[in-house]
Amino acid sequence: MDKRLPDLAAAVAPIHDGAVVMIGGFGSSGIPFGLIDALLDQGATDLTVISNNAGEKEIGIARLLKANRVAKVICSYPRSPGSIWFERRYEAGEVALEVVPQGTLAERIRAAGAGLGGFFTPTGYGTLLAEGKETRKIDGRGQVFETPLHADFALLRAERGDPWGNLSFHGTARNFNPAMAMAGKHAIAEVRALSGTPLDPETVVTPGIFVQALVQHEVRP
């Protein structure tokens, strides 16, 4: 089995207009900048982006927003210092926003990958973000029902990978990447060190069964 692809363009080629795309990363860490740039060049538009943040300055997701390729953002924290392109599109009503508490976002993504129909969480109970959602008292505590978040594609950033799709990560760059690998129907990883030999199974963080394609991209942001 060999899931390696020759370049970033080949990796993002299947992404279609209107696709729901998960993008790993938190702040500047663990973001697949190479795949995002390739997606910009590829031209797919009307995308729904699921990611923790909504891009900063003129890099990453901000480039997709600037080029008006994003119809909707589902994230926990769209407002970062320098998130000018999100703010501009949001103010102009050009991008829809669904704000999700960060842990609920992570768990909704994990639930999709794990084949669950959703879960109850105390997070957000009684707040604006639970309005209209089913609630239940469990062990005397108010809980909110949250549904799984599926995606057509997941764009990931990993430190090491092998032809079977196994991945390991570096530092705090792991964040949403393993859960998104599970939830994306077609998960694509950009990997700093893509090896032709198998990773030591003891070091694998994301098993290759969750990853459909890998491409080498050495640059660390």
Partner: peptide, 16 residues
């Protein structure tokens, strides 16, 4: 309301 809301992990922290 002109300010996009940003919740991050605050709601998860306070319940747990």
């Amino acid at each position: 309301e002109s300010f996009p809301p940003a919740v991050g992990g605050a709601m998860d922290l306070v319940v747990g």
